[in-house]
Design a protein around this nucleic acid. Structure first.
Lengths: 144, 144
DNA sequence: TTTGGTGCAAAGCGTTTGCACCCGC
DNA sequence: GCGGGTGCAAACGCTTTGCACCAAA
């Protein structure tokens, strides 16, 4: 999804294309293969524009999330990390815990999960699956 | 795992069997099929003993976690929830998002995950899988 | 008696919110 | 000019920590 497509969708929902919002979106697009914290996004934008506030990042992420444009996860330390959704097809992620690199994992046993839940009287409302590891690049860096 | 077995393991690690610690452990054992927040544990213990502090709960959960006796997860809201580990066999959980009820899900495609990660140059260090739903009891309550 | 444990209050930290001012449209 | 957007500072909620006192072993 390009910057203009996202801005267009936001416009239809009543949101404006401001300079700061554009910088945040450009950061997310440029790093679409990384999962980032609000603070990381804040710092990245700050490198190009001294005038940005953390709360602006949070408010923009909230809007993107409402528009269903954001994939969110939360680390063991309780920090929320996000990336732009890459496609509509159901999938999960393989995440590098060092650098945040993302690989799409699209083999999901959703049918098995639903049947298992039903078998135990549960109505399945969702599931989470994340593979965590260290990418090739970070493995090489570790050897230094 | 019984209360005495846990206290024995803690003793070997240099920890004492205090009254408050015992109350926390009894609460975890009694509710072994529920996933609880620190605050829920605090309130449950408080019902039986006016003298307990939230920080004591956190400190005890930290010790249990170091002793590998605790399963931890974190909600979308950033609240950590715990339960005593029920067995050593690798497994995941089906969780009721209303009442916290837990069902063990032991069909895990770990081999597939490892192969997928290796195929992308990753060293797989772990994975998370949680099924979320509403248990039969909570479904019935909702209809009221 | 030694050393870990606890309650209390304050601090930490990521995140949210109220408010005044700013800026797309 | 209207209504959404932003920076700033303060508040929030969960969790951690420093400290003095308590209690297991």
């Amino acid at each position: 999804m390009t910057l203009n497509q996202i801005l267009e969708q936001l416009k239809l929902a009543g949101y404006k294309a401001t300079a700061t919002r554009t910088l945040i979106l450009e950061t997310l697009i440029k790093n679409h293969e990384l999962i980032l914290s609000a603070d990381e996004i804040y710092l990245m934008v700050k490198l190009e524009n001294a005038k940005i506030n953390r709360s602006t990042v949070y408010r923009n992420l909230e809007i993107l999330s409402e528009e269903n444009l954001l994939y969110k996860t939360i680390t063991d330390q309780g920090v929320t990390k996000v990336k732009l959704r890459c496609c509509d097809k159901h999938h999960h992620h393989l995440i590098c815990d060092r650098c945040g690199k993302i690989v799409v994992f699209d083999q999901c046993a959703s049918d098995l999960y639903r049947e298992f839940a039903q078998g135990h009287g549960f109505l399945l409302t969702g599931h989470t699956l994340e593979l965590h590891g260290i990418c090739k690049n970070c493995q090489l860096l570790e050897r230094v």
